[in-house]
Design a protein around this nucleic acid. Structure first.
Lengths: 156, 156
DNA sequence: ACATTGATTAGAATGATTCTCGTTCTTATC
DNA sequence: GATAAGAACGAGAATCATTCTAATCAATGT
């Protein structure tokens, strides 16, 4: 087993640089590092269970509870983000660039949708009670992805 | 117990008129009617459990399972809408006017936010893969409601 | 009347997530 | 370089919203 805890300055390589920017108490244990690494390498917004299985390939002794702990820690440190589709299980995303998610209503896949040049201001479109402080807007786009569109039209 | 099933034309009064517009198989049993009525009278986006307790006041024998059934039926008939905040329990809303929801991050209350005159087009703000068919965008606005804002600022 | 269909119920089952608690590891202190 | 305090870990139990199951009942069509 590699040495356990490691505060940010320990290894100023790729990943750690990213962490150093955020400062605060981002203590990266090997498990947290693995979980984070798996997410960085995934672009399919895996669920906790997906992450568990992918990390298990490298650290077979890791438990699902630890994966949840790591994901919670990484989320509250701001290193990753939770993605929610309706009430189904949480998915996780290491893409911190501002973006929203597109959900295919047929295959269920989640894709990133990156901002165009125009900034989005929710209060331009919807009226909230006077005195409301808006902190953010969650936007998720639904529809049919290109793959499912071509499959569906091929059947007709 | 009142007579059981009743298809739309049975009682062309206020509520039923609204149902008739949608046509299709909107069979309103007394329980479904109660559940719908409770939602129409509520503007606080109650959970299934909230609805259960409110309906229980009028129909004490109703079960939680039936409330879920009724809510599902009403939702799939398009008479009501489900509202989701992160992964917490589903809330329900009988306001069918186009609107989005504002969630107070402090007290958790959900308020309707009605559209301004400008139409919202998600593809104006975010780029989706070519060939994607967008069917809708879910928008939820987060922040602090007027009540919580005044409470918070009063403390300082 | 009788069969069929759908609605209703209580309670069990599910599934994602969180909690608990004993154990192990890390870091600071002596 | 022992040790105490505090995190992190893992296994399994617990929780909570929701869905399923099986039985019963009501209404409608033959």
């Amino acid at each position: 087993m590699p040495p356990h805890h490691s505060r940010i300055p320990s290894k100023p390589s790729g990943l750690d640089c990213r962490l150093a920017v955020l400062g605060a108490d981002v203590r990266l244990t090997p498990h947290r590092r693995e979980v984070f690494q798996v997410l960085v390498e995934s672009n399919d917004h895996p669920t906790a269970y997906d992450v568990f299985h992918r990390v298990k390939g490298r650290s077979p002794s890791i438990s699902l509870a630890t994966v949840y702990n790591c994901l919670d820690h990484l989320t509250s440190s701001g290193l990753i983000k939770q993605v929610h589709v309706e009430r189904s299980q949480s998915r996780y995303c290491a893409n911190l660039h501002e973006h929203v998610h597109f959900h295919c209503d047929i295959c269920g896949k989640v894709r990133d949708a990156h901002p165009q040049t125009v900034a989005f201001d929710p209060s331009h479109f919807w009226q909230v009670p006077a005195g409301t402080q808006i902190s953010r807007a969650d936007v998720s786009i639904h529809g049919v992805c290109p793959e499912c569109t071509s499959k569906t039209s091929a059947q007709n």
